[in-house]
Design a protein around this nucleic acid. Structure first.
Lengths: 240, 240
DNA sequence: CGGTGCTTTGAGCATACTCAACATCAGTGG
DNA sequence: CCACTGATGTTGAGTATGCTCAAAGCACCG
């Protein structure tokens, strides 16, 4: 068993924060715990490449990971940022369809796919749990397709902090003061914009008093409602 | 049991063409068959709306269905076209995140979600099958995000028939002579382009001799390799 | 035939990109 | 402590790509 875990397997387990254990009983949690291994990786370290054979399902314990696909000439599309508590690495026919790279120092927990399949066979609700997670990811991907295909630069840049804000709210954290671990190039590759456009549009949002920017990586939302309108979220709910 | 089925349950069942039955034994196929119901819908009929409570998983038997998300002002992003043998309707927390609409007359087979969950509980490999399908959809969504975020109009329009061609090849059909059941507006909403750009760029592909167009809805690929280069698929594999 | 919906083509324009210069920041070593 | 360096971010000018608006061309259908 990997010694790196600092997970309490007792009755009021800290492990409940882990998405992958949700809904499992004590015995199966221990089983999962036994097959898992923790790894740390530094910022910019590649966890796996597009095309690699996939062997593990990963859960982020700490830090943030980006997933991206490349065109042959180097153009990049980041398909998602993975935050603590979220998983990644489940790909079709056991070949990764994206590259995973830590954007800051990170700690990951890996579960061998072969052993997960064994657990699945005796525990159908575990497969359903995975299904639910992937279904959420698919819905998020569809959301992002709408953004990429149909939103203007202003709408994209406004939507971005709102998405992060929602995640913070769900986690019970401060949803107005946001930390952006990614740089401008990452934001551009996520939103389908050039870095100059990211920079210009964020400056403009600052100038009109909707957000505040501090030290490159910190952003405070000053006017959530106006930001929502700019992001072209359903304005009718705000038109009261 | 719905009488509309024309599915042979005998040993060499025609049902094997159905994605959802793949890998199941005779008894479970019959069980699935018993809970299923067939419905027909005419072109432009809405099967469900974004926000509707989801009750069924659908499989397309015949025809083509489009899935889309809308912005409040009416801008549309089609997240996918669903062809015979493919499924749709599995959404997070049982609420549809997209609208489903038939683009031509279609025949669908619906499976109640509640009953599918019962099957899942006694048959883990069924859940794994669903998981595999959704995982494929997620990979396709990531592919499409790369197209929407990072490809030019020419690359988008070139990629489109290539994708359809791949599907036909997998199905063992003619992969050069393609039928496009969708209109130009649908293609634009799928690729994140205005219909005028779709029209202009397809005309240009015709003029340079890469494709042939007949009666709006039929397209023949004349030069698959050149089309691949234009779609910015890895040009290195063609540079021999 | 005339209508209706879809598609094509044209002209002008706006958005976001490219290229380029400059500013700022973090880290390093004198 | 400060100068130096490389990486990252901001700002500006000019331009290209793809959008909008408009009109004409086609096919399908009573």
């Amino acid at each position: 068993m990997s010694a790196a875990h600092s997970v309490d397997l007792g009755p009021s387990a800290t492990i409940t924060t882990s998405t992958i254990h949700r809904g499992l009983d004590q015995r199966h949690r221990e089983q999962l715990f036994c097959i898992s291994s923790v790894q740390t990786c530094r910022a910019k370290a590649v966890i796996f490449h597009e095309g690699d054979r996939s062997k593990h399902l990963f859960e982020v314990l700490d830090g943030v990971v980006k997933l991206y696909r490349l065109l042959p000439d180097g153009r990049r599309q980041i398909t998602g940022f993975v935050y603590p508590g979220q998983v990644f690495g489940l790909d079709r026919s056991h070949v990764h369809t994206a590259t995973a790279e830590a954007i800051v120092d990170a700690r990951l927990c890996g579960y061998p796919l072969a052993k997960l399949e064994l657990i699945t066979e005796e525990l159908p609700e575990f497969a359903l749990g995975l299904l639910r997670m992937i279904t959420n990811e698919l819905a998020a991907a569809h959301d992002h397709m709408l953004l990429l295909g149909r939103k203007s630069a202003t709408e994209k840049i406004s939507s971005f902090p709102l998405g992060l804000s929602d995640r913070c709210r769900d986690e019970g954290e401060d949803s107005m003061m946001l930390h952006l671990p990614m740089n401008r190039a990452n934001i551009g590759d996520y939103l389908g914009l050039a870095i100059e456009t990211v920079s210009r549009t964020m400056t403009w949002l600052r100038q009109i008093g909707v957000i505040e920017l501090h030290q490159r990586h910190d952003l405070r939302i000053l006017d959530h409602d106006r930001l929502s309108v700019l992001a072209e979220e359903d304005a009718s709910i705000l038109a009261v």
